[in-house]
Design a protein around this nucleic acid. Structure first.
Lengths: 214, 214, 214, 214
DNA sequence: CATGAATGAGCGTTCATTCAT
DNA sequence: CATGAATGAACGCTCATTCAT
């Protein structure tokens, strides 16, 4: 192969590159596992997806998975984490941006809607976290509450700054979150609306009733 | 043993009653199974609930369940059915009632919200129907589509009769259904809002943006 | 079949006999499992004996074992228990019998030696209790300490009543127990000494040094 | 490959030392493995000790162990060997020393008792050799028989020279060996008796009954 | 109608061992 | 000489389902 050649060069310039390479290869493989796993979890449910199936799709054997994850639960937890990051990213971004409450709320709606268009995002609302151990569940739920708190905060903010009409904050937040989470259940990769279109429309539709346009 | 004796007396006065009684007793037991099952399904998930647990809570043994249901799947299907009936009831009622589209939509929202406050209703949105066999799933999904179609019909009707502002019917229906289905995930039996309060508020809140109040 | 006939008779004389029969059948099967299990445990070690092997020798399948025992550990614990009973039986018998310390000690030695000639007795000293969960191990060890305490008590008693010469009680008890437990390692079912002969000789030999024959 | 080159320099000044050094380093590491291994084997049992655990305690990785040992069994066999050497050493020493049978028996008892105070010695009696392959087991058992033969030889010798009273040689040897082997099960590193005290007491106690002191 | 017993299929996990690097 | 990765084999255990009683 070309291996003997390609090895010599990095050896001189950076003796650690092989390690880097390995680390990177490892991360790539971990990600591959997660992508396959979340896909199957969404397709068949967590309990009905055996590690054998996950491994088979990766052309490895079941025990090989244990090189990357301690157990099946850890795989799910990391899937949740990746989904959570998507939504939290939008929350953080909007928090750091200038604009009134309504503007920020709409941004968060868009971000959360886009999250629901991706596998890792969908797993947040479609894989029941009751399969997790108490500790893991607690962590996952903490993440979910964070997003919920974001919705409420922006709504309250909007009411305070006048961009949003007074309303029941908690219920409104639930209504919005519910409509968005539901996207994860009906959206189709090849549907006639793109995720961005859905996100934009939701941002408007879900704030129509509370936006102060006077 | 002594049963044949104790049966003979009623046999004379009314030969049909015992059958009736039996049927009734059987139905009562079936219902009891379903109530326990749906409760456990919601608590632990379908896959993680063994028939043994269901049987134990009923103080019977596992195989006894097979006298009332062909298999585990049938139990779940019937739970879905009962939930479905709740929502479909509201749909039928509103269909038969006079009123414009907005009025009917609000009625359906209330009905569906109340459905989400009950175990059988919650199982519609919290138990993943991917655990079902293809045939059973098809049936269940047909039921769900029925409700969805109801939402869309009332919205279209409202747009036609002017009670609802023109909007993207499909997306609006999804948003409303999502907000309502989500209730099943956050509602608590001893929360500070009664199901009726939630239903009423949702009926208003979810139509605020589209109601034509001019 | 002959069922309807054969059932009627016991129904009259004793309506509970079928249950009794079942209970008895169950106990017989449990015992059979234990006998096979302890045999294999002694032959190959606990960890290297799979439940499959146990089941196969009983002409049943592995999960059938779970009708009688909660898990593999429980099987071992019950084997220990049966062995423990053998030795404790001798202890209790000697405690209740008249005689000086030396007499009782010799009786206990004989009893313990005979215990070591049986599978359940051997498992006490040949199956490492470190495979048990902490709780189970504690219980098992408590049992073992009981026997040890018995040896010490009889020795002390003998010293007090003059039948045994003053000696280091603890060490002497250990030496005797060790010599006896070792029997479980070298005895052979078809050896040239019968268990009784071994027991008798041990009773003498192990007390030669401390018996007060003056 | 590059080894032949790097070896050339030391080859001039002292061609043997590098080998010696290497061998020594290798042996040191082998010993370290054995010490850790026997410790864990005694603590958790052979089957329940994974090579990973052994490697971890040595701050190396599991496959590295295979540079020093062909497989897990070989590790255990060598542990046995080291234990065996301890006891055989005492046997040889006493064989070469002047003195009657009783004297030599007592020396062997002391030596064997001291063996039981060490990890490698304990593994002789606490790790079941049934985990070994037939060939390895045969070898190990041959070693054990050697010790047993030593006990019998000294007893017979003592009977012949009058230092020991006539007795059943085989049974007496078993009783003594059993009492000594048992030490491995109850001795504690920080107990109130030192190994030497135990050894001395045992040498007396176990020969009290058969010593000819007339 | 209900039960105890049994089964077959399957799952998550562990581990000694091998191998390319 | 050491490592990370991978594998094959096995194991304990669970569970829906069946069946004789």
């Amino acid at each position: 192969m070309t291996r003997s050649k390609s090895r010599k060069v990095p050896d001189i310039t950076s003796p650690w590159e092989p390690f880097e390479d390995r680390r990177r290869a490892r991360d790539i493989k971990r990600e591959a596992v997660l992508r396959v796993a979340v896909h199957l979890f969404l397709e068949q449910g967590y309990d009905r997806t055996s590690l054998n199936e996950v491994a088979e799709r990766l052309n490895i054997t079941k025990p090989a998975l244990y090189n990357y994850f301690a157990n099946k639960e850890e795989i799910l937890v990391e899937c949740y984490s990746l989904g959570q990051e998507l939504s939290e990213g939008a929350l953080t971004r909007m928090r750091e941006q200038d604009g009134d409450g309504l503007f920020r709320l709409r941004g968060l709606i868009r971000g959360h809607a886009l999250t629901m268009a991706q596998d890792f995002g969908q797993c947040l609302v479609r894989i029941d976290d009751r399969v997790l151990s108490p500790e893991a569940r607690r962590e996952v739920r903490a993440g979910k509450r964070l997003i919920d708190a974001g919705f409420r905060a922006f709504i309250s903010e909007g009411i305070a700054d006048g961009s949003i009409r007074p309303c029941d904050v908690k219920l409104t937040a639930f209504a919005i979150a519910g409509a968005l989470n539901w996207i994860g259940h009906w959206i189709q990769p090849d549907g006639d609306r793109s995720p961005e279109q859905i996100a934009d429309e939701m941002a408007l539709r879900l704030t129509e009733g509370i936006a102060n346009t006077a």
